[in-house]
Computed example of a mutant assay.
Amino acid sequence: MFSPQGPSLRELAVQALSSVERGYDLLAPKFDGTPFRTPDRILDATTDALRPLGPFEQGLDVCCGTGAGMRTLEPLCHGRVAGVDFSAGMLAQARTAHPDADWVQADVRELPFAETFDLAVTFGALGHLLPAERPALFAGVHRALRPGGAFAFPITAPPPVASAGYWALLGFDAAMRVRNAVWRPPFVMYYRTCPLHAVRGELAAAGFTVTTVPLTSLGQRENGTPRARLVLARRPVTPA
């Protein structure tokens, strides 16, 4: 399914009926052959937006999966680059693809770092956290960054209500809620739980100063606004 290198429909069904961790362990060998892997154009747009703010020393990819975020971190960071994820299967793939990076298995809601990194990124992972869990992630990233460090991630504008994309995402999230209501363990994967206004407020509550940068290379919507923005959260040099 998706491509000759991607998982079969049966494999996806088994994954979807597993826990998030077990599901991604199963999917890991074929993950890069699915649309769930962050496209290079988004990684490259993020790199271009961050480049004027660098160079950085040490970088961290939060919820790193198979390591696609190294395409952004490696050109920007002169020192250590690392990834953290709770799936052993995904980390095994990442180690094979990027043997010079450091890979850490941990729950991102309890990040095991303190003032270690200058740049942290995450791609496509916030939908795997319930809204009530995001503050713990943001607090952990704030703690992991050195003063003056940056946490960045792309966020796309919601599709218009009249578009097929809007109803497809709404239908997916509804189906996932039904699945989690009737099946255990839960598989948390939602596309409509991370509105920009919500994550801005949560990042500010964690101690970040927050701005956004239009990712112009990803195009504009019909009303002229950008299809995607880079959320840029900075840990202040001195505490507020």
Rank of each mutant, 00 (worst) to 15 (best):
G224K: 05
G148H: 04
F151H: 02
D32Q: 04
A88W: 13
T156E: 15
G89N: 06
F86H: 10
T225M: 12
G23W: 00
L230F: 05
V62T: 03
P154G: 04
P214I: 02
P55S: 09
A49F: 01
G124V: 05
G59D: 03
G65V: 00
E202Y: 09
V237R: 13
A206K: 01
R143A: 10
V178L: 13
D102T: 14
H98I: 06
L9P: 09
R71T: 14
M189H: 15
S3G: 13
L196I: 04
A181H: 15
Q58C: 14
R227T: 10
G59K: 01
G148E: 06
F151Q: 01
L17Q: 07
S163H: 10
R143T: 06
G83T: 08
R229L: 14
A68H: 02
F117I: 03
P186R: 12
E11R: 05
S163T: 08
F138N: 00
G148M: 08
T216R: 15
R41D: 13
P226Y: 04
S163I: 07
H78P: 11
R95H: 06
R41Y: 15
Q105M: 14
P99T: 03
L12S: 04
P159L: 07
F153C: 03
A164S: 15
V213G: 05
A181D: 15
A45L: 03
A150K: 06
A106R: 14
G207H: 09
A175E: 08
Q220M: 14
F2P: 00
D173L: 10
D25P: 04
T46R: 01
N180Q: 06
A136Q: 08
E110M: 12
L137S: 00
A68T: 02
A174Q: 14
L126T: 01
R41A: 11
F113T: 02
F138L: 04
R192S: 09
A164C: 14
V182G: 06
A97G: 10
A233D: 02
A49D: 00
L60S: 06
S87C: 11
A82Y: 02
R80V: 12
E74F: 11
